[in-house]
Design a protein around this nucleic acid. Structure first.
Length: 648
RNA sequence: GCCGAUGUAGCUCAGGGGUAGAGCGCUUCCUUGGUAAGGAAGAGGUCAUGGGUUCAAUUCCCAUCAUUGGCUCCA
């Protein structure tokens, strides 16, 4: 007998060789139907794998990531079986479960697979699933595994096997399919009731650009058909919030083939929105002791040789601009920091001057690879809400914390709750990628970790994600379709001050090197507006909305009164307009609701007589009538409240 | 940059070897209205661009550009 300890610390005895599924059945039949995988001493196991030793157990269902993992992992094997059926001799790379579904990387040996092939593959998967083939685990010696794949001529699996230790190698088998795999898997294929292949893509073997590109097929599966339908519906809903769609509909931004890809054009409403965000941040920064500076869009190549950027990015950037002067070369600025360093050097600095906080909405140009461009979130010309803080070592932590505070103010103002704070450190095994001394790196990394701890900020640490000149703290958010984007960033930099030989005179009358903090709480205006669009589904808070109210005259007869209302509101700094189209009121309401204008003001005979407007709130309907003064006060009060709640 | 898909009116899309269609939008007219689509007429397209095949190409083929799903990258 073995002792099984449950999450509530209760202990039961079972015969050795009992399986997770047996245990689930011993508890309740309904649980046994739902359970998908089992946690054994912290490892995720198959439900059908026998347990021979005392263990802590946890049963996982669809509600648990560990349950989904087994489900989708098994689905990947099912898809692979279908692929082998239609494409005999196909070589398999890896096929894991992911956040939403699964994929398999395959090498078809040149045979093309396209989305047109999905229906037949899905059909085959359904057929194989309904056979309820058990997933069978087998542990085998490495030698046998290698010879198995040598016969199949499968270089990918052989490469994977090389990295595994003998004794840890397991195969899984279902129906006519066998795969090198660590598991875990479902008891049988019958669990998989609904599946859909979603897309097909190229993916480099082991994620390395220098390797061969395999074909990756993504899919998703569910224990119930209805769940699949719900998921697909949700995907469609998410697409309606895509900033590229909303940006076009609401006339925020546009692109032009002639201007060039990745170079956004800000339309009047977008420009308004952006200006408002900028002045909001400028005000916050002023309170925090920042000073605005302005620097040119180009600089001599030498500036970037000094900064180290030329060596790192010269070849993959926009090429230098040459001039009539022999040998003279300028670069479009890819970042603002070198310019700001030169501002620091304008005059000698005393320790009493520090910290110096230099802010600039600086537009930069980076030649992103064509395949990387994405709406407004990844572009080639963008404006950073950049600032550089030059401080003494003893000021570093405090300054860093103050920057975190600014990020919080912004996120709170725009109601961003679902972000992750990521600390990106250098990969100590790949020091070639970075510039600067070990000592400085260690100091910088320590400073970030301590500041976040002091702030009680929950962070995830990513090794190898640092910028080449320093570690950073990034604030990441997800877009409508679940893709992660970096918004705010804070970076500690000991390197640029060295390279630019920045100095200050200390109280000891000696020269010292300041530390630099790079920071951009929005990240870039482009990306931030994109995320804001998706986050609000285009319904901006009143204080930001490019148009706050629209006046809807019931008929032409009330156009004069509408103009009077408009003038009145304009005098109160309310952004309003009149919809004087020759349309019925119902139509005007519909159109302006869809334009997501926060307040619709209906004016007709009643209103003209009494000097009022009928107020309708976007998405909420009729709010009754108010006199014009009352409405102006009401709206401005709401704006004031929004702004006050931010600054608290 | 790589693999795949897509590119038809301002927008969303249908069509297809014999030089094009819908809905919305736009213009004009009728209507002058009360809380999510009133009616009619009209304008608007080198079917992304450049080559090729063909008697004939918007349609088939190739290249380029752009968009897009991923991969890689992201100062």
């Amino acid at each position: 007998m073995i002792k099984i300890t449950f999450p509530d610390n209760s202990i039961r005895e079972y015969p050795a060789g009992v399986t997770g599924l047996d245990i689930a059945k011993s508890l309740s039949n309904s649980l046994a139907e739902k359970v998908l995988s089992v946690g054994i001493n912290g490892e995720i196991w198959d439900l059908t794998r026998p347990i021979y030793v005392d263990a802590n157990i946890k049963l996982y269902t669809w509600e648990d990531d560990q349950g989904k993992l087994a489900f989708w992992h098994s689905s990947a094997h099912l898809m692979a079986e279908a692929l082998e059926f239609f494409y005999p001799g196909v070589k398999l790379g890896i096929g894991p479960s992911i956040e939403n579904g699964f994929y398999y990387d395959i090498d078809t040996g040149g045979k093309a697979i396209s989305e047109a092939d999905f229906p037949k593959l899905e059909q085959k998967m359904k057929e194989l699933a309904s056979m309820k083939n058990p997933y069978i685990r087998r542990e085998i010696p490495k030698e046998e595994a290698v010879s198995h794949y040598s016969e199949k001529n499968d270089e990918y699996k052989i490469e994977l096997l090389h990295d595994l230790e003998d004794g840890t190698i397991s195969f899984y088998h279902q129906g006519n399919f066998t795969d090198l795999c660590r598991g875990p898997h479902l008891p049988d294929t019958g669990y998989i009731k609904a599946m859909k292949l979603l897309n097909i893509a190229g993916a480099y073997w082991r994620g390395d650009e220098r390797n061969k590109q395999l074909t990756r097929i993504y899919g998703i599966s569910f224990p119930k058909q209805k769940m699949l339908e719900e998921y697909l519906f949700m995907l469609e809903e998410a697409k309606a919030r895509d900033h590229r769609k909303l940006g076009k509909e609401l006339e925020i931004f546009a692109f032009s083939q002639k201007v060039g890809s990745g170079l956004p054009l800000w339309l009047p409403k977008g420009a308004q929105l952006r200006e408002r965000l900028e002045s909001f941040l400028k005000k916050v920064q002023k309170d925090y002791g920042y000073e605005q500076v302005i620097t040119p869009h180009i600089a001599q190549k030498e500036l970037y040789i000094t900064s180290g950027h030329w060596a790192k990015y010269g070849v993959t950037s926009f090429k230098p601009i040459s001039t009539p002067e022999e040998g003279e070369e300028f670069l479009l600025k890819p970042m603002n920091c070198p310019h700001h360093c030169e501002i620091y050097k304008v005059k000698p600095r005393s320790y009493k001057d520090l910290p110096i906080r230099m802010a600039e909405f600086g537009t930069v140009y980076r030649y992103e690879q064509s395949g990387e461009l994405h709406g407004l979130t990844r572009v080639r010309g963008f404006t950073q809400d950049d600032a550089h803080i030059f401080c003494r070592p003893d000021q570093l932590k405090e300054e860093f914390i103050k920057v975190i505070d600014i990020v919080f103010i912004i996120f709170k103002a725009l109601d961003f709750k679902n972000f992750t704070a990521q600390i990106s450190l250098r990969d100590p095994n790949d020091k070639e990628k970075y510039i600067g001394t070990d000592e400085n790196w260690e100091k910088a990394e320590k400073a970030i970790i301590e500041a976040t701890e002091e702030k009680g900020l929950k962070t995830v640490i990513e090794i190898g994600e640092a910028a080449f000149y320093g570690p950073k703290l990034d604030f990441m958010v997800k877009d409508a379709l679940g893709r992660k984007w970096q918004l705010g960033t804070i970076q500690v930099d000991y390197n640029l001050p060295d390279r630019f030989e920045l100095e200050y005179v200390g109280s000891d009358n000696q020269r010292h090197r300041p530390i630099m903090i790079h920071r951009a709480p929005f990240g870039s205006m482009e990306r931030f507006v994109a995320v804001l669009l998706e986050h609000t589904a285009g319904k901006f808070p009143l204080w930001l909305s490019p148009e706050q109210a629209v006046i809807l005259p019931i008929s032409e007869k009330y156009h004069d009164y509408s103009k009077k209302v408009l003038n009145f509101l304009n005098n109160y700094d309310i952004r309003a307009l009149i919809d004087d189209r020759n349309e019925k009121i119902g139509k005007k309401i519909r159109d302006n609701e869809l334009k997501r204008i926060p307040y619709l003001l209906i004016v007709g005979e009643k209103e003209e007589e009494s000097g009022t407007v009928s107020v309708r709130k976007q998405g909420e309907g009729d709010k009754g009538s108010m006199d014009i003064q009352q409405f102006a006060d009401f709206l401005n009060q709401e704006v004031r409240q929004q702004l006050e709640s931010i600054s608290k």
